[in-house]
Amino acid sequence: MNRALRPLLATTAIFLLAYIAAVLQYPSMLSTRVLGNFLTDNAFLGIAAVGMTFVILSGGIDLSVGAVIGFSTVLIATLIMWAGLHPLLAFAITLVISAAFGAVMGAAIHYLKVPSFIVTLAGMFLARGGASVLSPDSIGIKHDLYTNISRSYILLPGGGRLTVIAMIMLAVFVLGIILAHRTRFGSYVYALGGNETSAALMGVPVARTTILVYTLSSTLAGIAGIVFSLYTSAGYSLSALGVELDAIAAVVIGGTLLTGGYGFVAGTFIGVMLQGLVQTYIVFDGTLSSWWTKIVIGGLLFLFILLQRLVFSASSPRKKAFRKS
């Protein structure tokens, strides 16, 4: 069996066990209502985490994600409420700007040979600072489109609601899975994460792939920003603080190796859902501080990093193709 699958299976097993344990304690957690809320509440995180998965698979990191989400919400709010643009036009402008932002970071990482950590840290300050300059205060968004979208959903059997933003997230995951596993771009991303020198010698377009990876991540952060503004009906420069770290946690818990080259987009989905499960459990319990979410996520991260060490660095028995004659 592919050893990269093992952390993913472990995550899936932990999610199922945790869910069963939670349901035994609070039987009402087993409902499409709760599941629907899982998806809605974590939609922006899930979308950003798909982008983060590609970045980490390629051997990099993107710390600007949360700031780009925050910047996007403010930009959308100012364009709709102050400039009077239609939300769809505001969305388009936001996506173009966030894509360009990612492309510039990717180009800096590749051509200036600066670690992605530093470049995206600078990107984080730029985006967060830019958002505060646009508007330090929260701007409420009132528009018919926002009202209509928040009222639209697919009713699930059992009374749960599959909202528009949940559907956007699911669509992003499906497209992300196809992109990672069924396209040449996907194979180039894994190649970069495996060994950049070899990848270049094998003809992988390293510059283009690096730039596209960060463009993808920032664009998805822009989409996450759109989703976040739909979710909160507001734009605020300090929204989505630290979401890049939640996204990294979801990616790693989902079985992607932090150093790149191994992992699955689908695993990130389970990583996001596991974080949602912990939050929901705390809401059901009612007595626990919401900071327990962070403690549980911290514990899980440690567990998975340990697990990956065991799986990837333990001397894997090499298959001998030739038997001694």
Binding site: R184, S187, Y190, M202, G203, V204
Partner: peptide, 20 residues
């Protein structure tokens, strides 16, 4: 060996020229 240890043998043979 300047190939990709993290990818399958098949992908190493066809990387960059996969039929699509």
């Amino acid at each position: 060996v300047n190939l990709l240890p993290n990818r399958s043998v098949a992908e190493n043979l066809f990387l960059g020229r996969q039929p699509t």
